[in-house]
Design a protein around this nucleic acid. Structure first.
Lengths: 334, 334
DNA sequence: TTCGGTATCGGTACCGGTATCGATACCAGT
DNA sequence: ACTGGTATCGATACCGGTACCGATACCGAA
């Protein structure tokens, strides 16, 4: 099976003394092959260690078993879990995911999608609804099922699995106000690129304003959101505005960092100040202080998206423009 | 560019009124094409929106631009970061990663590797050195560069990028003993499958025994290691053995959970009990209490591994059996 | 015996590129 | 004018499968 002398279907056919076609059919479990020949072929394949060549079958069959996935980042457990869900949703389907990373950059996203397309994938999964115009055109003309995930605030190209971040932000505001919080701060990272975080903030502020409230202080940083920056930004925010009784973070990583600052500084959470994040990361539930979060079904989103494509491929249904909206469950720790 | 009527190289050639070969060469930047023709072809390609077909070129060229990656889990930030490193190491090389998940299961790993191979990848990156015998044979005969990552305790098939977990466990024991700790506990998850965690434990115990010490209490759980189980297991361990002055965890997730338990229970860390994990996750440095860890260069490992394959492909060098050992930096919080 | 139908097979033509090698044109040198 | 060399091009043969369709064999029915 060395570099040069790959075992091919022709070899299998030869050792089973049938034609390539019969061998091909037998191996794929397609019909029109006698039982005895199926056995012979299977045995031959096992004997000489036949592995098959996806490139060839995909090229020939006009469509591969690849699913192209484009996410903004891999160094973020949220997307990693989405990927895990995708892998789970494809299990047993014989399909494989190929990944591309956009780095929250629309140009890179375009390139990634384009690249995926050149593999003739069975489907595409991309993050969010806010693609560049050219990228969107690419997706529209792709001719295969496309699932946009995570977000539902906007118009999808084809199918869409996710949640409304705008609504999630609003719901959190509702809950916090209902719990009697009045003086709000906000902490976020990467705001110029993370459109979903912005949508949450928008929804959050919108609800506040209907209650005659507002965000009194904001702390933003450019880099990626980490626990460390959450801790640092919280320290800064509370130093400047010590009278805040609630801080909304763009996600749980930052919120956890905020919790750490408060623990270290002896600030009682949530009595003195309530903290609220987003995602419902595993870590939140074991934190020594109680903070609020919206639990997002990341794994399920990935799984549902993958299943959509697997099903579309199996039934040859093409695009069905399904929408699958999840509602994040609010976990209020106040 | 719809499903049926894909734009092919022949179309480009036709609109540029040259042969397919000339178009192919022009597009790839290969030599033997006049400047004027290169321009004509490039223009034609842009005009009709040619995208190219990786399947076809890979099949024809006997080798694809795919890199197969097999990791045990995606729902673990450590491997997600490795993936991010791999993506980084391949940037600009025109190569793409395809992922497979083994779920810490050797059978699934075999299937995943086999599956990767059927894409004629330019190289393979697999996690760890402890593959099944059949999987190992597959890797040996793959005929492409193979990089085994994360681990260095064993004999690699080809190249190897990682660290010695045995040594890392030992180093941590040395440090903790040097700091005066005497009564050790251990907490781990998924022990029957996570061979690297076992190697760390082995190295840890080995050093302890040379000092006349031992692990006095152990708490193990079957599931995946999460902060939550870390917290629960720590509570149980300390309830049973309240006199421990140090707990070694199989990783930082568990250790962070331990820290949370101690904070909540009012147990002073590290004065009363020191906690030590593994990986050097971001969260550790912003924790409100100080714990120890070994910082592993996950991103770098992924990047180095990917670069090995990219280089091997570029220089056509084949296997070079390089070893790249990283030494995790000990961060002792005592 | 002949005939139509079903079950099984195999030949051939692709899929969309690339490697190879021969063909062609054009140039300087003699 | 003739020769050899270089630059540029294209026809052809694959790569390893699968779709399509025609061929073959064997069966019961007429």
């Amino acid at each position: 099976m060395d570099e040069k002398n790959r075992v091919t279907l022709a070899d299998v056919a030869a050792t089973a003394s049938v034609s390539k076609m019969t061998a091909s059919r037998a191996l794929r479990g397609a019909g029109d092959v006698s039982k005895s020949n199926v056995e012979k072929v299977l045995q031959a394949a096992k004997d000489i260690g036949y592995v098959g060549n996806h490139l060839a079958s995909s090229l020939s069959g006009k469509r591969s078993d690849l699913i192209g996935v484009v996410v903004p980042s891999l160094a973020n457990i949220v997307f990693a879990e989405v990927l895990a869900g995708i892998a789970e949703g494809m299990e047993g389907s014989g399909m494989q995911p190929v990944f591309g990373v956009s780095d929250y950059d629309t140009d890179k996203e375009y390139l990634a999608v384009r690249n995926m397309l050149s593999w003739s994938p069975a489907g595409l999964i991309v993050t969010g609804l806010d693609q560049d115009e050219t990228t969107r055109r690419l997706l529209e003309n792709a001719g295969v099922p496309v699932v946009q995930i995570m977000d539902m605030d906007g118009t999808p190209v084809d199918a869409c699995v996710g949640l409304s971040h705008y609504a999630a932000g609003g719901a959190m505001a509702e809950a916090l106000v209902a719990a009697g919080r009045k003086r709000f701060g906000y902490i976020g990272c990467n705001m110029n690129r993370d459109t979903r975080a912005n949508k949450r903030l928008e929804g959050f502020m919108r609800v506040l304003s209907t209650k005659g409230l507002e965000i009194a202080a904001i702390e933003i940083c450019d880099g990626p959101s980490t626990t460390k920056s959450g801790r640092d930004l919280t320290a800064r925010l509370l130093a400047d505005s010590p009278d805040l009784d609630c801080i909304y973070y763009s996600n749980d990583d930052l919120a956890a960092g905020g919790a750490f600052h408060c623990i270290a500084a002896g600030i009682s959470v949530p009595d003195r100040v309530a903290l609220a994040g987003f995602n419902g990361l595993d870590i939140v539930e074991s934190l020594p202080v109680s903070i609020s979060t919206s639990r997002t079904p990341r794994r399920e989103i990935g799984k549902t998206a993958a299943e959509y494509i697997v099903r579309a491929k199996k039934t040859n249904a093409g695009r069905e423009k399904r929408m699958h909206e999840y509602t994040p469950s609010l976990e209020v720790g106040i």
